[in-house]
Design a protein around this nucleic acid. Sequence first.
RNA 1: GGCUCCGUCGUCUAGUGGCCUAGGACUCUGGCUUCUCAAGCCAGCUACGAGGGUUCGAAUCCCUUCGGAGCUACCA
Length: 487
Amino acid sequence: MADKSQVRVRFAPSPTGDLHVGNIRTALFDWAYARHTNGKLIFRIEDTDRERVTDEYIQAAIDTLKWLGLNWDEGPEVGGEYGPYLQSQRLDIYAEWAQKFLDNGDAYHCYCSGEELEERRQLQMKNNQAPGYDGKCRDLSNTQIDEFKAAGRKAVIRMRMPQGETVFTDAIRGEVKFEHLYVPDFVLARADGSPLYTLAVAVDDVLMKITHVLRGEDLLSSTPRQIRVYQAMGVPESEYPIFAHLPFVMGQDNAKLSKRNGEVSIAWYREHGFLPEAICNYLALLGWSPGDDKENITMKELVELFTVERVNSSPARFDMKKLEAINGDKIRALTQSEFLQWALPFLTQAKVISGTTEEIDLVKAALPIIQERIVTLSEIPAMLNFLFVKQFAVDAQEQPKLLEVGAQEVLKVALARCSELTNWDHLSIEEVLRKALIVELGLKPRIAFSALRIAVTGSHISPPLFESMQLLGKERSLARISSAITS
RNA sequence: GGCUCCGUCGUCUAGUGGCCUAGGACUCUGGCUUCUCAAGCCAGCUACGAGGGUUCGAAUCCCUUCGGAGCUACCA
């Protein structure tokens, strides 16, 4: 057995777009496993397909991981002794290995064109044969090679898949077996010499001394190819990394999450007011469970509890409702200063406040009364807007409710009584209004306070009325009540 | 089509032969509380895909079947 006492896990996305929940769930598990075992997390960018991977996406991936708090020990920005960690900067390494495979006869040049390959594939399908490379160029004679070259053909490098089978033990699924009959010779490098995933991933995992590969289930069937490269590299079986193929995170329609299928980038969740800890907590529950009934866990607890043994093998559907529930829990668990820090950007961005100290003081005072009322941070601007608007106006839909006779009566009485108040705190306001409206007028509280709520906050849904009036201040509260009175 | 993986409430899951008339969470429904909305509390709905075995006893073991997904690229 290779030295697996020092766990080295890697998260190796191919940033062809913003990281989405599936990617992040994998990153989270990689991270949790590395931290749980006191191992190292290696962050590697698989950008061998430069047509699809852009620098913007790479940077976005880095930012997203940082925002989530999933820190890495080796990789972009932090370096490490096995770098570089961008595959596009390791091209010479792959080329060397590919040449070595060629020299040893493990790989060979294939001159078939894409059209020819496709044609033969169709034929195979038609004849009910397993589609895949048929080995046409496996044992070309020198004259044949010369002919191809003379014809101007370019060659890809193809790995020779020996007869037999590949058996390995997946840490989540147990023993998995692939007969090579169904694993055709695969391309290691394009005609221009650039490497493909199958080459780069295997070479890097070996060179970077990766001990555990936790990755998506979609890569399960590419594992025999990866193992084939290990063999060609001369890596003894005892030194292969341990594979653990994580179940999918699926969208609503039961298919793997993808761009076409509800794939939503983590950036989206960030913009919509989800906390990183809520996202991580929820994602941790997709395919893994702590074992007991406790589901609301911190990152620290996740690290303590996470084991691969407790990872499920069946796919999980993404459920926004549950994410929201957890997000609400996390928001409620925030300290006042934490909540303030999260809230401020949303308020400034929505232009509810500009950021003056007076405004921030008011926000600070108002946050406690809305903390248990929101599910996402993005709801904050709408909830506190009534405290900051310059041109206050009652919601058009609510307006008619203020015109009713009963409502007008309530407003008039409230205006008169509140004007006399000297202590403008919510307890005093409540006391005087209850006395006037409930005791003396005999109104039902929900009826009485509804009109007032609309007049003061503009909507029948608002933070608690008396606290809201206190925060608004006497002058503005009375002005709003007054302007709601029509006669 | 072939290969591979997967199959417990609507969803995420607990469950590794008796603790299971299947537990928890989210959703949903009803109620309590209540100045609205929330939060909180209480209650309810609802599941072992199907069929055969093995066993005194099966969600748990075996077989068959059905269903779903992934792969089948000079993508990753």
